[in-house]
């Protein structure tokens, strides 16, 4: 950065014919590559600590983490313990919401063997495919990601040749070539839903980033590693028709001094239209529960 100013003066005349001075050149050359390398080194370090999807841990592990921390958080964790038994951590690589959703959903199907749910979501996936096509996405850009998700969906249903166990599901969720492809599938679905209903999402997006819907999808939804916000969660929940409960663990407390743990249910309505009108729907019990701590999502298991 500090080099920029000085360069005009001597660069002006020379660079027309000769090649720019080396000191400056080196800086320019290294800037972008260095940042990229640093980022991937950081991710590699992070990877050693937490796999994409961790092991199931009792909720007491969470309390231990905050032992010397804020009393509000400790109080909230105690309250969480009344309703929830365990937590499964995900890697903080910006894909944690999608990764948590992936594992949680596939695990639900694996345990429940809910064939009706699988048929239902396949219908929604077909709709998402049509949405992307109508938005002008070339099939070959997204079809591999769709195929890989559908493959996982079929394999968690038992009784087929390709059926997999819970252990195998964990292995696959930690295998980058599968895990990242499924995350990318969700990113395509989320982007398609936001663009399809851009009028609905526009005000929320403006509140977040001051970007247009198009820019937001291009820069904050489709690229891997971009963190998710309530806009992403709403869109994914609506697009796939899957209710999601998010439990918030932060330092906020009620004015009257009482501490309670807030949660928000993202509930799609059966018509496919959505969290927009969720006030009027009958209560649905979400089978995906995520724990939100500022900047990160993990999976929660109810008792």
């Amino acid at each position: 950065m500090q080099n920029r100013e000085g360069v005009v003066a001597d660069g002006e005349k020379e660079s027309a014919v000769s090649i720019p001075v080396s000191e400056f050149d080196d800086w320019a050359k290294f800037a972008d590559d260095d940042i990229m390398q640093q980022q991937s080194a950081f991710h590699a370090e992070e990877a050693k600590k937490v796999p994409f999807v961790g092991d199931k841990e009792p909720l007491t592990m969470l309390a231990a983490e905050y032992e010397s921390g804020s009393p509000i958080l400790l109080e909230k964790i105690k309250l969480l313990g009344q309703q929830y038994a365990a937590i499964r951590r995900t890697r903080g690589d910006g894909n944690c919401f999608f990764r948590s959703f992936m594992f949680s959903y596939l695990e639900y199907v694996l345990e429940s063997q809910d064939h009706a749910e699988v048929d239902r979501i396949k219908g929604n996936v077909e709709e998402c495919r049509k949405t992307l096509q109508s938005l002008g996405y070339a099939d070959f850009t997204f079809e591999d990601f769709f195929a890989l998700f559908l493959e996982q969906l079929d394999s968690v249903l038992q009784g087929n040749e390709d059926s997999i166990s819970q252990d195998e599901l964990i292995i696959r969720s930690r295998d980058q070539s599968i895990s990242d492809y499924v995350v990318m599938f969700f990113r395509f679905v989320t982007s398609g839903e936001i663009r399809k209903r851009s009028e609905f999402f526009e005000p929320f997006i403006l509140g977040l980033t001051n970007a247009t819907v198009e820019q937001f999808c291009k820069s904050s939804v489709e690229p891997m590693g971009e963190e998710s916000d309530h806009v992403h969660i709403t869109a994914l929940s609506d697009a796939l028709g899957v209710p999601i409960r998010v439990v918030y663990l932060d330092r906020s407390s009620c004015d009257n001094g009482g501490v309670s743990v807030n949660h928000h249910d993202f509930v799609p309505t059966s018509g496919g239209h959505s969290n927009a009108t969720s006030g009027s729907t009958e209560p649905v019990s979400p089978f995906i529960t995520l724990l939100y701590r500022p900047g990160h999502y993990d999976i929660l298991y109810p008792k």
Binding site: I19, F142, R187, F188, S219, E222, P223, M224
Partner: peptide, 20 residues
């Protein structure tokens, strides 16, 4: 100027498989 490297967000952190 020397290497031909391009500074463009979609070739770095804004890349997604939607590009070809």
């Amino acid at each position: 100027f020397k290497t031909g490297e391009i500074c463009l967000d979609i070739l770095k952190n804004a890349w997604s498989p939607a590009w070809t």
